[in-house]
């Protein structure tokens, strides 16, 4: 069987790719996609830990389902906010949205 650490490595790499996406991309939609990658990395982790550590208790799998739901809710609200910005400024580039600064 594939050892646990391999799953954890995949999840960690996916999480790092997501973080890179959030930090390096300028498009708000792409940033949102980076966040989704991070949440999916969490799901891989949760399901892998569930399968290898506590296969009899369902908590890991149930948690993964919760993460899906929350990711969907966040995406719905986030896209609505981004569309709102786009209607007004015709841009979704995060750096161009710079009215508030100290």
């Amino acid at each position: 069987m594939v050892p646990l650490w391999m799953y954890l490595m995949v999840a960690a790499s996916l999480f790092c790719i997501g973080v890179y996406g959030v930090l390096a991309r300028r498009n708000a939609i792409a940033i949102l996609m980076g966040i989704e990658l991070m949440l999916n990395a969490v799901n891989i982790n949760l399901v892998a830990f569930w399968r290898y550590q506590t296969p009899l208790a369902l908590s890991g799998q149930a948690f993964a389902a919760f993460v899906f739901v929350v990711a969907a809710a966040e995406a719905a609200v986030g896209l609505a906010l981004i569309i709102n910005i786009y209607r007004r400024r015709q841009t979704v580039i995060a750096e161009d949205v710079d009215l508030l600064k100290w």
Binding site: I35, L46, L100
Partner: peptide, 24 residues
């Protein structure tokens, strides 16, 4: 609108850190 977008993007970013930590 801008404050909402900033709050959302940073908030969602940080809550994925939280849930990754919880998974660990």
């Amino acid at each position: 609108e801008e404050s909402a977008m900033k709050y959302f993007l940073l908030g969602a970013f940080s809550s994925s850190f939280l849930v990754y930590g919880i998974a660990l």
